[in-house]
Simulated assay, not measured.
Amino acid sequence: MPVLPYNADNVKFAKALRKNMTPEERKLWFCFLRKHIPKFVRQKPIDNYIVDFYCQARKIAVEIDGSQHYDIKGADYDTKRTDILNNYGIKVIRFSNREINQQFKEVCTVIEQCLHE
């Protein structure tokens, strides 16, 4: 499988993010993705971005969006970022913090469905 390009400057930041996950990232990682097959990794640098969770085998990025993603600037940034990731053949699926906290089972079901498409 070809190696995705990444900004080397983001590697140190990605390691820090792994150590300081949000509560919603922790929940999704420790309650579902950590031992999932196919394998997911946390805080994966791709291009000039860092995706929350990435499954290389299926080319799926899972993003958990906090409140900063819902203003105009955040939404524009996410659209651009998603377009760039899509150009690498990566499918991006997004969930809000609220969905992780209140609809966790449904979130896991959506991820499973995307993995089997």
Rank of each mutant, 00 (worst) to 15 (best):
L4A: 11
L4P: 01
L4R: 09
L4M: 12
L4T: 04
P5E: 08
P5G: 10
Y6K: 04
Y6N: 10
Y6R: 14
N7A: 09
N7R: 11
N7T: 05
N7M: 08
A8V: 13
A8F: 00
N10A: 00
N10E: 06
N10L: 11
N10G: 05
K12S: 12
A14D: 03
A14T: 06
K15D: 03
K15S: 13
K15C: 12
K15Q: 12
A16C: 04
A16F: 09
A16R: 15
L17S: 05
N20Y: 01
T22K: 07
E24A: 05
E24C: 11
E24G: 05
E25S: 03
L28V: 03
L28S: 01
W29E: 02
C31S: 14
F32Q: 11
F32E: 00
F32P: 06
L33D: 07
L33P: 00
R34H: 06
R34C: 09
K35F: 09
K35S: 11
I37K: 15
I37S: 15
I37H: 14
P38Y: 02
P38H: 09
F40P: 02
F40R: 05
V41A: 11
V41D: 12
V41Q: 10
R42P: 03
R42K: 15
R42F: 02
Q43T: 14
Q43I: 05
Q43L: 12
K44Y: 06
K44N: 04
I46Y: 02
D47P: 03
D47F: 00
D47S: 09
N48M: 10
N48D: 13
N48Q: 14
Y49T: 07
I50C: 06
I50S: 01
I50E: 05
I50Y: 09
D52K: 07
D52F: 00
D52S: 12
F53A: 02
Y54C: 00
Y54L: 07
Y54P: 02
Q56S: 15
Q56R: 12
Q56N: 15
Q56G: 10
Q56D: 13
A57L: 11
R58T: 08
K59P: 03
I60G: 04
I60R: 06
A61P: 07
A61Q: 06
V62N: 03
V62E: 05
V62F: 04
E63P: 06
I64D: 00
I64M: 10
I64Q: 00
D65E: 12
D65Q: 12
S67V: 11
Q68N: 13
Q68F: 14
H69G: 13
D71M: 10
I72S: 12
I72T: 07
I72R: 15
K73E: 11
K73Q: 13
G74S: 14
G74C: 08
G74N: 07
A75R: 15
A75M: 15
A75K: 15
D76G: 03
